[in-house]
Computed example of a mutant assay.
Amino acid sequence: MSAMSHEFDLSQATMLPPAKPGPHPIPDAGALASQWDAVHEAAAAVGHLAQLSREDTDYSVQSLPLRAAELGGWHYEMVARGIDDLAAVMQPGLRALLALTADGRDTTAAALTLWREFHIARAAILSIAVQD
């Protein structure tokens, strides 16, 4: 039995500089806030299909994009990625529910499941922007 060997030549590799310590510029929270609002509008539509009343969001939910931008760095990047991922789940889920509704089918159980998944994912995203 022969073992495979690999030769790694790092002579041509590009090394990234270390992250600069200290304050970083605050990222623009505008686009992040727009996407956060859009995800919540989709969740409101899903809640309606699940026969739930419209949710009142508290300040910690509303201020997430601003908090993430103020924290910056990996906090901001992870919140932005989390919101992208949540939007990627909500969009086709809502489309499917609306298609079923248009066919006259009852979507209450499926909508309630998607609504619960939204809240679980949102709680995870919110936990990223907690200051240490």
Results as ranks from 00 to 15, higher is better:
L52G: 00
D103A: 13
A87T: 03
L32W: 00
H40E: 09
M1E: 10
A109L: 08
T107G: 08
V89N: 02
S127P: 00
A31D: 08
A19P: 09
S34F: 03
H24Q: 13
R54T: 12
D84S: 09
Q12L: 09
Q62S: 15
E41S: 09
E77A: 15
A99H: 12
L49K: 03
T57C: 05
P18H: 06
A129Y: 04
L16S: 11
A87G: 14
R122M: 14
A45N: 10
A88V: 02
G104M: 08
A68L: 07
A13Q: 07
L16N: 11
T14G: 03
A38L: 10
S60H: 13
A121W: 04
A43E: 08
A80C: 05
D56R: 06
H6F: 15
Q131E: 14
A68V: 06
S11V: 03
T108S: 08
Q51H: 11
E70I: 11
A29T: 00
L86N: 02
Q12A: 13
V130R: 14
S5T: 14
P18F: 06
E117Q: 14
P27E: 01
G104R: 06
R105W: 01
D37F: 08
L16Q: 11
G82V: 04
W36R: 05
T113E: 03
L97D: 03
E55N: 02
A44R: 07
M4I: 03
L94H: 02
A45P: 01
A44Q: 07
A45E: 15
A50Q: 02
M90N: 06
